[in-house]
Nucleic acid binder design. Structure first.
Lengths: 280, 280
DNA sequence: TTGTAAATGTCGGCT
DNA sequence: AGCCGACGTTTACAA
Protein backbone atom coordinates (compact mmCIF):
# COMPACT_ATOMS: atom_id res chain seq x y z
CA UNK A 1 0.00 0.00 0.00
CA UNK A 2 1.53 3.27 -1.14
CA UNK A 3 0.33 6.81 -1.51
CA UNK A 4 1.59 9.62 -3.66
CA UNK A 5 1.22 13.28 -2.82
CA UNK A 6 1.81 16.29 -4.97
CA UNK A 7 3.10 19.44 -3.41
CA UNK A 8 -0.47 20.73 -3.18
CA UNK A 9 -2.67 17.83 -2.19
CA UNK A 10 -3.23 14.13 -2.55
CA UNK A 11 -3.81 13.62 -6.24
CA UNK A 12 -3.35 9.88 -6.61
CA UNK A 13 -3.71 7.07 -4.10
CA UNK A 14 -2.99 3.49 -5.06
CA UNK A 15 -3.44 0.22 -3.22
CA UNK A 16 -1.97 -2.99 -4.59
CA UNK A 17 -3.59 -6.32 -3.82
CA UNK A 18 -5.64 -4.78 -1.00
CA UNK A 19 -7.97 -6.80 1.18
CA UNK A 20 -11.62 -6.41 0.20
CA UNK A 21 -12.29 -4.15 3.15
CA UNK A 22 -9.22 -2.00 2.50
CA UNK A 23 -10.31 -1.72 -1.13
CA UNK A 24 -13.82 -0.83 -0.05
CA UNK A 25 -12.61 1.91 2.28
CA UNK A 26 -10.25 3.40 -0.30
CA UNK A 27 -12.95 3.39 -2.96
CA UNK A 28 -15.57 4.86 -0.62
CA UNK A 29 -13.10 7.56 0.32
CA UNK A 30 -12.33 8.26 -3.33
CA UNK A 31 -16.02 8.54 -4.19
CA UNK A 32 -16.54 10.87 -1.24
CA UNK A 33 -13.69 13.05 -2.45
CA UNK A 34 -15.19 13.17 -5.96
CA UNK A 35 -12.13 11.46 -7.31
CA UNK A 36 -11.97 9.23 -10.33
CA UNK A 37 -11.70 5.65 -9.06
CA UNK A 38 -10.26 2.67 -10.89
CA UNK A 39 -10.28 -0.97 -9.86
CA UNK A 40 -8.50 -3.75 -11.67
CA UNK A 41 -9.17 -7.37 -10.85
CA UNK A 42 -11.08 -10.56 -11.53
CA UNK A 43 -14.80 -9.96 -11.48
CA UNK A 44 -18.24 -10.89 -12.73
CA UNK A 45 -20.62 -8.26 -14.06
CA UNK A 46 -24.39 -8.17 -14.08
CA UNK A 47 -26.56 -5.52 -15.66
CA UNK A 48 -30.28 -5.04 -15.60
CA UNK A 49 -32.24 -2.14 -17.03
CA UNK A 50 -32.99 -1.22 -20.65
CA UNK A 51 -31.77 -4.73 -21.39
CA UNK A 52 -30.07 -7.27 -19.16
CA UNK A 53 -26.71 -9.00 -19.32
CA UNK A 54 -24.39 -11.31 -17.44
CA UNK A 55 -20.65 -11.59 -17.78
CA UNK A 56 -18.64 -14.50 -16.34
CA UNK A 57 -15.45 -13.99 -14.38
CA UNK A 58 -12.46 -12.33 -16.02
CA UNK A 59 -9.80 -9.69 -15.39
CA UNK A 60 -11.19 -6.23 -16.10
CA UNK A 61 -10.57 -2.55 -15.56
CA UNK A 62 -13.40 -0.70 -13.87
CA UNK A 63 -13.67 3.08 -13.76
CA UNK A 64 -16.05 5.03 -11.56
CA UNK A 65 -16.34 8.71 -12.42
CA UNK A 66 -17.43 11.41 -10.00
CA UNK A 67 -20.31 12.34 -12.33
CA UNK A 68 -21.79 8.89 -11.83
CA UNK A 69 -20.55 7.18 -14.96
CA UNK A 70 -19.19 3.63 -14.67
CA UNK A 71 -17.11 1.74 -17.23
CA UNK A 72 -16.03 -1.89 -17.33
CA UNK A 73 -13.26 -2.53 -19.84
CA UNK A 74 -11.78 -5.81 -20.99
CA UNK A 75 -8.43 -5.94 -22.77
CA UNK A 76 -10.23 -5.68 -26.12
CA UNK A 77 -12.40 -3.18 -27.90
CA UNK A 78 -12.91 0.51 -27.78
CA UNK A 79 -16.26 0.17 -26.06
CA UNK A 80 -16.70 -0.98 -22.48
CA UNK A 81 -18.18 -4.45 -22.11
CA UNK A 82 -20.56 -2.99 -19.54
CA UNK A 83 -21.21 0.53 -18.35
CA UNK A 84 -23.53 2.93 -16.64
CA UNK A 85 -24.26 6.49 -17.82
CA UNK A 86 -23.46 9.68 -15.89
CA UNK A 87 -25.95 10.43 -13.17
CA UNK A 88 -25.73 7.11 -11.41
CA UNK A 89 -25.17 6.64 -7.71
CA UNK A 90 -22.08 4.53 -7.03
CA UNK A 91 -22.01 2.22 -4.05
CA UNK A 92 -19.24 0.00 -2.73
CA UNK A 93 -19.50 -2.71 -0.10
CA UNK A 94 -18.28 -6.14 0.88
CA UNK A 95 -20.30 -9.31 0.76
CA UNK A 96 -19.63 -12.25 3.10
CA UNK A 97 -18.48 -14.50 0.27
CA UNK A 98 -19.32 -15.17 -3.35
CA UNK A 99 -20.36 -18.76 -2.93
CA UNK A 100 -22.48 -20.40 -5.59
CA UNK A 101 -25.39 -20.50 -3.18
CA UNK A 102 -25.48 -16.71 -3.07
CA UNK A 103 -29.02 -15.92 -4.07
CA UNK A 104 -29.87 -13.00 -6.33
CA UNK A 105 -32.54 -11.90 -3.95
CA UNK A 106 -30.10 -11.35 -1.14
CA UNK A 107 -28.22 -8.70 -3.09
CA UNK A 108 -30.81 -6.02 -2.81
CA UNK A 109 -31.18 -6.49 0.89
CA UNK A 110 -27.44 -6.36 1.43
CA UNK A 111 -26.85 -3.35 -0.76
CA UNK A 112 -27.79 -0.75 1.78
CA UNK A 113 -28.20 -2.83 4.84
CA UNK A 114 -25.92 -1.34 7.44
CA UNK A 115 -26.54 -4.18 9.83
CA UNK A 116 -25.70 -7.33 7.88
CA UNK A 117 -25.22 -10.38 10.05
CA UNK A 118 -21.52 -11.05 10.70
CA UNK A 119 -20.16 -7.73 9.44
CA UNK A 120 -17.76 -8.40 6.52
CA UNK A 121 -15.15 -6.24 8.22
CA UNK A 122 -14.23 -9.17 10.38
CA UNK A 123 -13.97 -11.70 7.57
CA UNK A 124 -11.67 -10.08 5.06
CA UNK A 125 -10.33 -13.29 3.60
CA UNK A 126 -13.66 -14.57 2.38
CA UNK A 127 -15.35 -11.24 1.75
CA UNK A 128 -15.83 -10.08 -1.83
CA UNK A 129 -15.73 -6.49 -3.00
CA UNK A 130 -18.86 -5.32 -4.81
CA UNK A 131 -19.40 -2.18 -6.86
CA UNK A 132 -22.94 -1.11 -7.61
CA UNK A 133 -24.10 1.76 -9.83
CA UNK A 134 -27.78 2.55 -10.11
CA UNK A 135 -30.08 5.16 -11.54
CA UNK A 136 -33.77 5.74 -12.19
CA UNK A 137 -35.55 6.87 -15.38
CA UNK A 138 -34.84 4.40 -16.58
CA UNK A 139 -34.31 2.05 -13.68
CA UNK A 140 -30.91 0.50 -14.27
CA UNK A 141 -28.40 -1.36 -12.15
CA UNK A 142 -24.84 -2.46 -12.72
CA UNK A 143 -23.22 -4.88 -10.31
CA UNK A 144 -19.52 -5.77 -10.35
CA UNK A 145 -18.37 -8.52 -8.01
CA UNK A 146 -14.64 -8.95 -7.49
CA UNK A 147 -13.14 -12.32 -6.69
CA UNK A 148 -9.72 -10.73 -6.66
CA UNK A 149 -8.61 -7.11 -6.54
CA UNK A 150 -5.18 -6.38 -7.98
CA UNK A 151 -5.25 -2.64 -7.75
CA UNK A 152 -7.38 0.24 -6.53
CA UNK A 153 -6.54 3.81 -7.48
CA UNK A 154 -8.17 7.16 -6.87
CA UNK A 155 -7.28 10.22 -8.90
CA UNK A 156 -8.11 13.80 -8.00
CA UNK A 157 -7.47 16.11 -10.91
CA UNK A 158 -8.59 19.27 -12.58
CA UNK A 159 -9.54 19.60 -16.21
CA UNK A 160 -10.51 22.97 -17.63
CA UNK A 161 -9.37 22.09 -21.13
CA UNK A 162 -11.96 22.51 -23.85
CA UNK A 163 -12.03 20.29 -26.90
CA UNK A 164 -11.98 21.98 -30.28
CA UNK A 165 -13.15 19.78 -33.08
CA UNK A 166 -13.25 20.39 -36.82
CA UNK A 167 -14.50 18.39 -39.74
CA UNK A 168 -18.06 18.19 -38.45
CA UNK A 169 -21.38 18.64 -40.19
CA UNK A 170 -21.51 22.16 -38.77
CA UNK A 171 -18.28 22.90 -40.63
CA UNK A 172 -19.81 21.60 -43.86
CA UNK A 173 -22.86 23.78 -43.30
CA UNK A 174 -20.76 26.87 -42.61
CA UNK A 175 -18.70 26.17 -45.69
CA UNK A 176 -21.82 26.28 -47.86
CA UNK A 177 -23.27 29.31 -46.08
CA UNK A 178 -19.98 31.13 -46.61
CA UNK A 179 -19.92 30.26 -50.29
CA UNK A 180 -23.30 28.97 -51.55
CA UNK A 181 -21.85 28.48 -55.02
CA UNK A 182 -20.07 25.44 -53.63
CA UNK A 183 -23.46 23.74 -53.68
CA UNK A 184 -24.41 25.06 -57.08
CA UNK A 185 -24.10 28.31 -58.93
CA UNK A 186 -26.86 30.70 -57.92
CA UNK A 187 -27.96 28.90 -54.77
CA UNK A 188 -29.35 31.13 -52.03
CA UNK A 189 -29.62 29.82 -48.46
CA UNK A 190 -32.73 31.11 -46.73
CA UNK A 191 -32.73 29.22 -43.42
CA UNK A 192 -31.00 26.52 -41.42
CA UNK A 193 -32.81 24.05 -39.22
CA UNK A 194 -36.09 24.98 -40.90
CA UNK A 195 -38.78 22.90 -39.28
CA UNK A 196 -41.17 20.60 -41.10
CA UNK A 197 -43.69 18.09 -39.78
CA UNK A 198 -41.05 15.43 -40.42
CA UNK A 199 -38.10 17.17 -38.80
CA UNK A 200 -35.67 20.02 -39.37
CA UNK A 201 -34.06 20.73 -42.75
CA UNK A 202 -30.31 21.36 -42.56
CA UNK A 203 -30.34 24.11 -45.18
CA UNK A 204 -33.45 25.51 -46.81
CA UNK A 205 -32.96 27.74 -49.84
CA UNK A 206 -33.66 28.68 -53.42
CA UNK A 207 -31.92 27.90 -56.65
CA UNK A 208 -31.15 30.16 -59.59
CA UNK A 209 -34.66 29.69 -61.00
CA UNK A 210 -36.42 30.39 -57.71
CA UNK A 211 -37.17 26.75 -56.95
CA UNK A 212 -37.23 25.72 -53.33
CA UNK A 213 -34.23 23.56 -52.35
CA UNK A 214 -34.00 21.17 -49.41
CA UNK A 215 -30.39 20.36 -48.49
CA UNK A 216 -29.35 17.49 -46.23
CA UNK A 217 -25.74 17.49 -45.04
CA UNK A 218 -23.55 14.57 -44.04
CA UNK A 219 -19.92 14.85 -43.00
CA UNK A 220 -19.00 11.51 -44.51
CA UNK A 221 -19.98 8.95 -47.14
CA UNK A 222 -23.67 8.14 -46.86
CA UNK A 223 -25.92 5.16 -47.31
CA UNK A 224 -29.65 4.65 -47.78
CA UNK A 225 -30.59 6.14 -44.42
CA UNK A 226 -29.46 9.63 -45.40
CA UNK A 227 -31.47 9.42 -48.64
CA UNK A 228 -34.56 8.40 -46.66
CA UNK A 229 -34.00 11.31 -44.35
CA UNK A 230 -33.82 13.80 -47.23
CA UNK A 231 -36.85 12.26 -48.89
CA UNK A 232 -38.79 12.57 -45.64
CA UNK A 233 -38.11 16.30 -45.45
CA UNK A 234 -38.92 16.89 -49.11
CA UNK A 235 -42.15 14.94 -48.74
CA UNK A 236 -43.16 16.85 -45.66
CA UNK A 237 -42.41 20.20 -47.24
CA UNK A 238 -44.37 19.28 -50.36
CA UNK A 239 -47.38 18.45 -48.23
CA UNK A 240 -46.87 21.59 -46.19
CA UNK A 241 -46.49 23.95 -49.14
CA UNK A 242 -48.77 22.14 -51.58
CA UNK A 243 -46.06 22.81 -54.13
CA UNK A 244 -45.18 19.49 -55.66
CA UNK A 245 -43.43 20.36 -58.87
CA UNK A 246 -40.97 23.01 -57.83
CA UNK A 247 -39.20 21.25 -54.96
CA UNK A 248 -35.64 19.99 -55.18
CA UNK A 249 -33.83 17.81 -52.66
CA UNK A 250 -30.04 17.78 -52.58
CA UNK A 251 -27.88 15.48 -50.50
CA UNK A 252 -24.46 16.93 -49.75
CA UNK A 253 -21.70 14.56 -48.63
CA UNK A 254 -18.23 13.47 -49.65
CA UNK A 255 -19.70 10.47 -51.49
CA UNK A 256 -22.62 8.01 -51.63
CA UNK A 257 -22.91 4.24 -51.82
CA UNK A 258 -24.31 2.56 -54.92
CA UNK A 259 -27.58 1.71 -53.28
CA UNK A 260 -27.99 5.23 -51.96
CA UNK A 261 -27.26 6.54 -55.45
CA UNK A 262 -30.05 4.41 -56.89
CA UNK A 263 -32.46 5.49 -54.18
CA UNK A 264 -31.66 9.11 -54.95
CA UNK A 265 -32.46 8.50 -58.60
CA UNK A 266 -35.63 6.59 -57.81
CA UNK A 267 -37.00 9.57 -55.91
CA UNK A 268 -35.73 12.37 -58.07
CA UNK A 269 -33.23 13.60 -55.52
CA UNK A 270 -29.78 15.00 -56.27
CA UNK A 271 -26.30 14.63 -54.91
CA UNK A 272 -23.46 17.11 -54.56
CA UNK A 273 -20.04 15.94 -53.45
CA UNK A 274 -18.52 18.16 -50.80
CA UNK A 275 -16.34 17.59 -47.76
CA UNK A 276 -16.66 19.35 -44.41
CA UNK A 277 -13.25 20.95 -44.75
CA UNK A 278 -11.94 22.37 -48.00
CA UNK A 279 -8.45 21.99 -49.43
CA UNK A 280 -6.08 24.27 -47.53
CA UNK B 1 7.79 3.08 -7.37
CA UNK B 2 6.36 -0.26 -6.42
CA UNK B 3 5.58 -3.53 -8.13
CA UNK B 4 3.08 -6.19 -7.27
CA UNK B 5 3.38 -9.86 -8.17
CA UNK B 6 0.86 -12.62 -7.97
CA UNK B 7 1.97 -16.08 -7.12
CA UNK B 8 1.99 -16.98 -10.80
CA UNK B 9 3.39 -14.01 -12.68
CA UNK B 10 3.54 -10.27 -12.74
CA UNK B 11 -0.03 -9.20 -13.24
CA UNK B 12 0.11 -5.56 -12.27
CA UNK B 13 2.99 -3.12 -12.22
CA UNK B 14 2.53 0.42 -10.99
CA UNK B 15 4.82 3.42 -10.96
CA UNK B 16 3.90 6.54 -9.04
CA UNK B 17 5.19 9.93 -10.15
CA UNK B 18 7.79 8.31 -12.39
CA UNK B 19 10.30 10.29 -14.39
CA UNK B 20 9.36 10.59 -18.06
CA UNK B 21 11.96 8.04 -19.06
CA UNK B 22 10.94 5.58 -16.34
CA UNK B 23 7.34 5.98 -17.45
CA UNK B 24 8.36 5.48 -21.06
CA UNK B 25 10.24 2.28 -20.24
CA UNK B 26 7.42 0.85 -18.14
CA UNK B 27 4.85 1.64 -20.82
CA UNK B 28 7.03 0.24 -23.61
CA UNK B 29 7.50 -2.91 -21.55
CA UNK B 30 3.78 -3.18 -20.91
CA UNK B 31 2.98 -2.80 -24.59
CA UNK B 32 5.58 -5.44 -25.44
CA UNK B 33 3.98 -7.82 -22.95
CA UNK B 34 0.54 -7.18 -24.45
CA UNK B 35 -0.63 -5.75 -21.18
CA UNK B 36 -3.31 -3.14 -20.71
CA UNK B 37 -1.54 0.13 -19.93
CA UNK B 38 -2.95 3.12 -18.07
CA UNK B 39 -1.41 6.52 -17.55
CA UNK B 40 -2.84 9.26 -15.39
CA UNK B 41 -1.48 12.75 -15.53
CA UNK B 42 -1.65 16.26 -16.94
CA UNK B 43 -1.60 16.19 -20.72
CA UNK B 44 -2.63 17.77 -23.99
CA UNK B 45 -4.27 15.72 -26.72
CA UNK B 46 -4.23 16.16 -30.47
CA UNK B 47 -6.14 14.09 -32.97
CA UNK B 48 -6.09 14.11 -36.73
CA UNK B 49 -7.88 11.75 -39.06
CA UNK B 50 -11.57 11.46 -39.92
CA UNK B 51 -11.86 14.81 -38.18
CA UNK B 52 -9.30 16.76 -36.18
CA UNK B 53 -9.25 18.06 -32.63
CA UNK B 54 -7.11 19.73 -30.02
CA UNK B 55 -7.47 19.54 -26.28
CA UNK B 56 -5.67 21.89 -23.88
CA UNK B 57 -3.88 20.65 -20.78
CA UNK B 58 -5.80 18.84 -18.06
CA UNK B 59 -5.63 15.79 -15.82
CA UNK B 60 -6.79 12.71 -17.69
CA UNK B 61 -6.80 8.94 -17.62
CA UNK B 62 -5.33 7.28 -20.70
CA UNK B 63 -5.77 3.60 -21.50
CA UNK B 64 -3.83 1.71 -24.14
CA UNK B 65 -5.18 -1.73 -24.96
CA UNK B 66 -3.17 -4.58 -26.42
CA UNK B 67 -5.54 -4.73 -29.40
CA UNK B 68 -4.50 -1.21 -30.37
CA UNK B 69 -7.38 0.74 -28.89
CA UNK B 70 -6.62 3.98 -27.05
CA UNK B 71 -8.93 5.90 -24.73
CA UNK B 72 -8.53 9.32 -23.11
CA UNK B 73 -10.98 9.92 -20.30
CA UNK B 74 -11.67 13.08 -18.34
CA UNK B 75 -13.52 12.97 -15.02
CA UNK B 76 -16.82 13.43 -16.84
CA UNK B 77 -18.88 11.55 -19.35
CA UNK B 78 -19.31 7.99 -20.39
CA UNK B 79 -17.46 8.58 -23.64
CA UNK B 80 -13.74 9.26 -23.90
CA UNK B 81 -12.85 12.84 -24.85
CA UNK B 82 -10.44 11.38 -27.40
CA UNK B 83 -9.79 7.86 -28.62
CA UNK B 84 -8.39 5.60 -31.27
CA UNK B 85 -10.05 2.38 -32.48
CA UNK B 86 -8.60 -1.13 -32.12
CA UNK B 87 -5.94 -1.93 -34.71
CA UNK B 88 -3.74 1.03 -34.00
CA UNK B 89 -0.02 0.87 -33.34
CA UNK B 90 0.87 2.40 -29.99
CA UNK B 91 4.15 4.21 -29.59
CA UNK B 92 5.73 5.82 -26.54
CA UNK B 93 8.70 8.12 -26.41
CA UNK B 94 10.14 11.16 -24.70
CA UNK B 95 10.54 14.57 -26.24
CA UNK B 96 13.25 17.00 -25.13
CA UNK B 97 10.76 19.48 -23.65
CA UNK B 98 7.28 20.76 -24.33
CA UNK B 99 8.26 24.38 -24.82
CA UNK B 100 5.94 26.65 -26.70
CA UNK B 101 8.44 26.80 -29.55
CA UNK B 102 8.02 23.10 -30.19
CA UNK B 103 6.96 22.94 -33.79
CA UNK B 104 4.34 20.52 -35.02
CA UNK B 105 6.60 19.48 -37.87
CA UNK B 106 9.26 18.15 -35.55
CA UNK B 107 6.94 15.52 -34.07
CA UNK B 108 6.96 13.18 -36.99
CA UNK B 109 10.72 13.19 -37.23
CA UNK B 110 11.10 12.47 -33.53
CA UNK B 111 8.52 9.71 -33.38
CA UNK B 112 10.77 6.95 -34.57
CA UNK B 113 14.13 8.66 -34.59
CA UNK B 114 16.45 6.55 -32.49
CA UNK B 115 19.19 9.12 -32.70
CA UNK B 116 17.61 12.34 -31.47
CA UNK B 117 20.13 14.99 -30.54
CA UNK B 118 20.78 14.99 -26.78
CA UNK B 119 19.01 11.76 -25.96
CA UNK B 120 16.11 12.48 -23.57
CA UNK B 121 17.43 9.78 -21.23
CA UNK B 122 19.94 12.21 -19.90
CA UNK B 123 17.47 15.06 -19.41
CA UNK B 124 14.66 13.52 -17.44
CA UNK B 125 13.61 16.70 -15.73
CA UNK B 126 12.73 18.55 -18.89
CA UNK B 127 11.68 15.60 -21.03
CA UNK B 128 7.98 15.06 -21.70
CA UNK B 129 6.31 11.71 -22.13
CA UNK B 130 4.42 11.25 -25.40
CA UNK B 131 1.95 8.56 -26.39
CA UNK B 132 1.13 8.11 -30.04
CA UNK B 133 -1.45 5.80 -31.60
CA UNK B 134 -1.74 5.59 -35.36
CA UNK B 135 -3.47 3.55 -38.00
CA UNK B 136 -4.09 3.60 -41.75
CA UNK B 137 -7.38 3.20 -43.69
CA UNK B 138 -8.24 5.67 -42.63
CA UNK B 139 -5.06 7.51 -41.75
CA UNK B 140 -5.49 8.63 -38.16
CA UNK B 141 -3.22 9.79 -35.41
CA UNK B 142 -3.69 10.46 -31.72
CA UNK B 143 -0.99 12.24 -29.78
CA UNK B 144 -0.99 12.60 -25.99
CA UNK B 145 1.70 14.78 -24.45
CA UNK B 146 2.19 14.61 -20.69
CA UNK B 147 3.45 17.59 -18.72
CA UNK B 148 3.16 15.55 -15.57
CA UNK B 149 2.72 11.82 -15.00
CA UNK B 150 1.11 10.83 -11.71
CA UNK B 151 0.80 7.13 -12.31
CA UNK B 152 1.66 4.45 -14.85
CA UNK B 153 0.18 0.97 -14.54
CA UNK B 154 0.34 -2.16 -16.63
CA UNK B 155 -2.12 -4.99 -16.21
CA UNK B 156 -1.72 -8.52 -17.53
CA UNK B 157 -4.94 -10.45 -17.25
CA UNK B 158 -7.04 -13.14 -18.82
CA UNK B 159 -10.65 -12.81 -19.83
CA UNK B 160 -12.52 -15.76 -21.27
CA UNK B 161 -15.87 -14.57 -20.01
CA UNK B 162 -18.57 -14.21 -22.63
CA UNK B 163 -21.28 -11.59 -22.40
CA UNK B 164 -24.86 -12.79 -22.59
CA UNK B 165 -27.33 -10.07 -23.45
CA UNK B 166 -31.11 -10.18 -23.62
CA UNK B 167 -33.70 -7.64 -24.59
CA UNK B 168 -32.32 -7.10 -28.09
CA UNK B 169 -34.01 -6.83 -31.46
CA UNK B 170 -33.09 -10.48 -32.08
CA UNK B 171 -35.14 -11.40 -29.00
CA UNK B 172 -38.09 -9.45 -30.35
CA UNK B 173 -37.78 -11.24 -33.69
CA UNK B 174 -37.57 -14.66 -32.03
CA UNK B 175 -40.58 -13.83 -29.91
CA UNK B 176 -42.67 -13.17 -33.02
CA UNK B 177 -41.31 -16.18 -34.90
CA UNK B 178 -42.18 -18.36 -31.91
CA UNK B 179 -45.71 -16.98 -31.75
CA UNK B 180 -46.68 -15.06 -34.92
CA UNK B 181 -50.09 -14.28 -33.45
CA UNK B 182 -48.32 -11.77 -31.22
CA UNK B 183 -48.05 -9.62 -34.32
CA UNK B 184 -51.57 -10.26 -35.47
CA UNK B 185 -53.90 -13.23 -35.65
CA UNK B 186 -53.16 -15.33 -38.71
CA UNK B 187 -49.76 -13.85 -39.54
CA UNK B 188 -47.32 -16.25 -41.21
CA UNK B 189 -43.60 -15.45 -41.27
CA UNK B 190 -41.96 -16.51 -44.54
CA UNK B 191 -38.43 -15.15 -44.23
CA UNK B 192 -36.12 -13.05 -42.13
CA UNK B 193 -33.55 -10.67 -43.57
CA UNK B 194 -35.27 -10.86 -46.95
CA UNK B 195 -33.30 -8.70 -49.32
CA UNK B 196 -34.71 -5.83 -51.34
CA UNK B 197 -32.96 -3.19 -53.46
CA UNK B 198 -33.26 -0.89 -50.43
CA UNK B 199 -31.99 -3.28 -47.79
CA UNK B 200 -33.03 -6.33 -45.80
CA UNK B 201 -36.52 -6.74 -44.32
CA UNK B 202 -36.53 -7.92 -40.71
CA UNK B 203 -39.52 -10.23 -41.15
CA UNK B 204 -41.25 -10.90 -44.43
CA UNK B 205 -44.58 -12.74 -44.29
CA UNK B 206 -48.24 -13.03 -45.14
CA UNK B 207 -51.37 -12.04 -43.32
CA UNK B 208 -54.63 -13.91 -42.89
CA UNK B 209 -55.86 -12.76 -46.31
CA UNK B 210 -52.67 -13.68 -48.11
CA UNK B 211 -51.38 -10.12 -48.34
CA UNK B 212 -47.64 -9.63 -48.22
CA UNK B 213 -46.44 -8.08 -44.95
CA UNK B 214 -43.20 -6.21 -44.35
CA UNK B 215 -42.25 -6.07 -40.66
CA UNK B 216 -39.64 -3.74 -39.22
CA UNK B 217 -38.55 -4.40 -35.63
CA UNK B 218 -37.20 -2.01 -33.03
CA UNK B 219 -36.31 -2.95 -29.48
CA UNK B 220 -37.35 0.43 -28.09
CA UNK B 221 -39.55 3.44 -28.70
CA UNK B 222 -39.07 4.72 -32.23
CA UNK B 223 -39.04 8.03 -34.04
CA UNK B 224 -39.33 9.11 -37.67
CA UNK B 225 -36.18 7.31 -38.78
CA UNK B 226 -37.70 3.88 -38.18
CA UNK B 227 -40.79 4.83 -40.15
CA UNK B 228 -38.61 5.97 -43.03
CA UNK B 229 -36.77 2.69 -42.91
CA UNK B 230 -39.97 0.67 -43.09
CA UNK B 231 -41.30 2.86 -45.87
CA UNK B 232 -38.08 2.37 -47.80
CA UNK B 233 -38.44 -1.41 -47.67
CA UNK B 234 -42.14 -1.35 -48.59
CA UNK B 235 -41.41 0.97 -51.50
CA UNK B 236 -38.61 -1.21 -52.75
CA UNK B 237 -40.67 -4.36 -52.52
CA UNK B 238 -43.56 -2.72 -54.34
CA UNK B 239 -41.25 -1.79 -57.17
CA UNK B 240 -39.70 -5.23 -57.13
CA UNK B 241 -42.98 -7.16 -57.13
CA UNK B 242 -45.05 -4.70 -59.17
CA UNK B 243 -47.76 -5.37 -56.57
CA UNK B 244 -48.82 -2.04 -55.22
CA UNK B 245 -52.18 -2.64 -53.63
CA UNK B 246 -51.61 -5.75 -51.58
CA UNK B 247 -48.56 -4.71 -49.54
CA UNK B 248 -48.69 -3.97 -45.83
CA UNK B 249 -45.94 -2.49 -43.72
CA UNK B 250 -45.94 -3.00 -39.96
CA UNK B 251 -43.62 -1.35 -37.48
CA UNK B 252 -43.16 -3.37 -34.30
CA UNK B 253 -41.78 -1.60 -31.24
CA UNK B 254 -42.74 -0.87 -27.64
CA UNK B 255 -44.08 2.55 -28.68
CA UNK B 256 -43.78 5.40 -31.20
CA UNK B 257 -43.43 9.16 -30.94
CA UNK B 258 -46.22 11.45 -32.12
CA UNK B 259 -44.40 12.50 -35.23
CA UNK B 260 -43.58 8.92 -36.11
CA UNK B 261 -47.23 8.03 -35.60
CA UNK B 262 -48.27 10.72 -38.07
CA UNK B 263 -45.71 9.60 -40.60
CA UNK B 264 -47.00 6.06 -40.33
CA UNK B 265 -50.51 7.29 -41.03
CA UNK B 266 -49.39 9.51 -43.88
CA UNK B 267 -47.91 6.51 -45.67
CA UNK B 268 -50.48 3.89 -44.84
CA UNK B 269 -48.19 1.99 -42.52
CA UNK B 270 -49.22 0.22 -39.33
CA UNK B 271 -47.91 -0.11 -35.81
CA UNK B 272 -47.98 -2.99 -33.37
CA UNK B 273 -46.79 -2.50 -29.80
CA UNK B 274 -44.54 -5.27 -28.61
CA UNK B 275 -41.50 -5.46 -26.36
CA UNK B 276 -38.42 -7.62 -26.91
CA UNK B 277 -39.09 -9.61 -23.76
CA UNK B 278 -42.52 -10.68 -22.67
CA UNK B 279 -43.94 -10.62 -19.15
CA UNK B 280 -42.41 -13.47 -17.18
C1' DT C 1 -38.60 14.97 -19.49
C1' DT C 2 -39.06 13.91 -24.26
C1' DG C 3 -38.06 14.32 -29.15
C1' DT C 4 -34.86 14.59 -32.88
C1' DA C 5 -30.60 13.87 -35.35
C1' DA C 6 -25.24 13.90 -35.32
C1' DA C 7 -21.18 11.13 -34.21
C1' DT C 8 -13.69 10.84 -35.29
C1' DG C 9 -19.99 7.12 -33.43
C1' DT C 10 -18.52 1.47 -32.64
C1' DC C 11 -19.54 -3.20 -33.70
C1' DG C 12 -20.86 -7.36 -36.13
C1' DG C 13 -22.35 -9.79 -40.20
C1' DC C 14 -22.00 -10.36 -44.84
C1' DT C 15 -20.42 -9.75 -49.65
C1' DA D 1 -12.17 -3.63 -47.47
C1' DG D 2 -16.86 -1.67 -48.10
C1' DC D 3 -21.86 -1.86 -47.23
C1' DC D 4 -25.52 -2.05 -44.08
C1' DG D 5 -28.12 -1.71 -39.83
C1' DA D 6 -28.28 -2.49 -34.64
C1' DC D 7 -26.81 -0.45 -30.32
C1' DG D 8 -28.39 -1.09 -22.98
C1' DT D 9 -25.76 3.36 -28.58
C1' DT D 10 -24.11 8.44 -26.22
C1' DT D 11 -24.36 13.32 -26.71
C1' DA D 12 -26.11 17.87 -27.66
C1' DC D 13 -29.87 20.78 -28.40
C1' DA D 14 -34.61 22.30 -28.57
C1' DA D 15 -39.40 22.31 -27.07
Amino acid sequence: MTTSRSTQSVRAVTLERPTPTAARDAIADGLDRKALVTVFGRCTVDYDGRASSQLAAGDRHVMLKPDGAALVHTDEGQQPVNWQPPGCAHDVFCEPASGEGDSEESEEADADGADSPADPDTATNTATLVLESTRSTPEERLLVRFQDVLQVSTFAGTDEGELTLSGTEADLRDRILDDPDLLESGFTPLATERDTPAGAIDIYGEDDAGRTVVVELKRRRVGPDAVSQLRRYVDALERDLHAEATLRGILVAPSVTDRAQRLLGAHGLEFVSLEPTGPD
